[in-house]
Design a protein around this nucleic acid. Structure first.
Lengths: 323, 323
DNA sequence: TACTTTAGTGCAATCGTTTGTATCGCTGTC
DNA sequence: GACAGCGATACAAACGATTGCACTAAAGTA
């Protein structure tokens, strides 16, 4: 069916090994032979079979990227940065979405095994035990979650949460709400810990919630009931949904209630009011994760955790507390 | 390194072919042997090497999905539906993003070749010639673009555009603007044709624009300058950006200008004003595309085009023309 | 001239599976 | 009692590449 290396060899009157080398070890073959072989290959429309190549070399030159939810605008910048970085290193990225389902996630890792050289696990919802186990099957780098003994890229959302709380406190808010995310989420846990460590103001915890606009929309009732005047939402999507939900209940943002999101996604910059948020260095995380992964693919894995800085971006969804 | 079928064979005292059949042709092996082999395989942590399997069977049980821009909320529902449908058929979906770059797109198709059984090409920006050529390398289904001679899934955006124009006309608007998308976009072309066929009202064409919020934001100046009171935007992102841009120029929506988007993405349902839009059956498109692809993988390709219906959803961004 | 290098190429094993065919020991049939 | 039929398993040839090694001929060295 498809044209193989053998066809090229026959057409050019050389051995398959010469054709192979014409592509992957040019210095070992006579320049003339090489150009002739390449020309014929081009002519015949030869494409190396990457699966076959992977079988002998043990390298696919692919990396897998697993995210919890492709629909979450948090991920695309990370994905794009990872893709760009991989391309620089002559690698390709295959993305898959788990739909926030740990079972699907595990299944996907199994599928990726042997089809990619390593996996970028973004915001995994798996248990630590499972991650530990799967690690034997394929090298990976974990992003956005603490995982002992393996390379990890983190964003300092704890510090971000502290800055957010300080910001709200400085504006005079005395009762805050934290709208938490999914239960398996490391980010959510970090935020909760940061909030729990606050002594100056009261913080109530509301959740877990789906990390989506609808999750925020649904949380509005509880937020109003909590009596909080300042809210830190799990992410910008939740914040946007929440603001909408609050509006439906007659609460203005930031007039009645201040809201802070996390991620600094584009929609948040265009919503009204423009969202005050904790910016996450997602693109940098994607780039670094790829580098760490490729590094740990052909040398020993560095088990270090890289922590990236976050920043509070004050826009229009936070204001002075009235009281 | 990794445990292979040979290790399992040796450990269980049978031939590799028996182990292979224990997995893929259970009825050909003694039930006792089978359970023993499976147990030992489990014990050893054996995972079939899918690349090796693909080499002999010619089936990877993967499908590739190529989109122009993962960050565009239009795609996730399509991707998720495709993934779900593929899972039903025991297939996995690998997603890749072209960043709207035809060169990257072609490159990705090459990479997918032999690593997937077929490719879903969503909103491709390639030329027809190139698509035609690449078709020989790997079967694919084209989504959201007309492509002769190969299976195609389309959404009737032309009819949607006509409904949108009728809606605006009925509201009394007499001068409309069409904010077009990228030049390679089939959707954009369809909309332009539909608009050009309108005789009742004036339509000015503004573009091409990037299919993003920023594209819409930037188009606001031209829209104001055009004197149009009704606008059909290339998609919801553009519409949202446009509404923001109009606001910055003191134009209220729908008070001064009515805006209609395309896609019916979630952010549009939560923005203020809630967006009037043309809903695209993206999830259905994803499902159908997967079925068509798998169908054309193991039988002859049906070159038919499937056209799915769109619907106008009237929300708050359109209103009566004042004059 | 004889010997070592070296460049260029061919040979064949290998990667981990699948799968068509051969083998073998039974059972059942006439 | 010879043989067909069959269930269960082994053998070996693929699949499409890569790669260590062997070989040849020409070039370099003393």
């Amino acid at each position: 069916m498809a044209v193989t290396i053998r066809d090229v060899a026959e057409a050019s009157g050389v051995h398959v090994s010469t054709v192979s080398r014409a592509f992957s070890a040019p210095h070992l073959v006579n320049p003339e032979t090489r150009t002739r072989v390449l020309a014929i290959a081009e002519d015949l429309g030869y494409r190396p079979n990457r699966a076959a190549r992977a079988l002998t070399t043990g390298r696919t030159h692919n990396i897998g990227l697993i995210v919890a939810d492709i629909a979450n605008p948090f991920f695309p910048p990370l994905i794009k940065a990872a893709q760009a970085q991989a391309r620089l290193r002559d690698y390709h990225v295959f993305v898959a979405d788990t739909d926030e389902d740990p079972q699907v996630e595990e299944d996907l890792i199994q599928t990726f095994t042997k089809q990619v050289d390593g996996v970028l696990l973004c915001s995994p919802r798996l248990t630590n035990r499972t991650i530990e186990r799967l690690r034997e099957e394929v090298p990976f780098v974990v992003v956005n979650r603490r995982a002992k003994g393996m390379p990890t890229v983190l964003m300092d959302v704890g510090r971000g949460a502290r800055m957010a709380i300080e910001h709200l406190t400085a504006l005079g808010h005395r009762r805050l709400a934290l709208v938490t995310g999914p239960s398996g989420s490391w980010t959510s846990k970090e935020m909760q810990e940061a909030a729990a460590a606050t002594s100056e103001v009261d913080v109530v915890f509301l959740g877990p919630n789906p990390p989506t606009e609808l999750g925020g929309l649904a949380a509005a009732t509880d937020v109003v009931a909590s009596g909080a005047t300042g809210v830190l939402a799990y992410n910008d999507l939740v914040a946007i949904g929440l603001i909408e939900g609050l509006a439906e209940r007659g609460k203005e943002v930031p007039g009645d209630i201040s809201v802070i999101g996390v991620d600094d996604i584009v929609p948040g910059r265009l919503s009204r009011p423009k969202l005050t948020t904790i910016a996450m260095p997602t693109a940098a995380a994607g780039r670094i994760a790829v580098d760490l992964l490729l590094q740990s693919v052909d040398s020993a894995a560095t088990a270090a955790a890289t922590m990236l800085e976050t920043a509070l971006i004050v826009r229009e969804s936070t204001g002075k507390a009235h009281r």
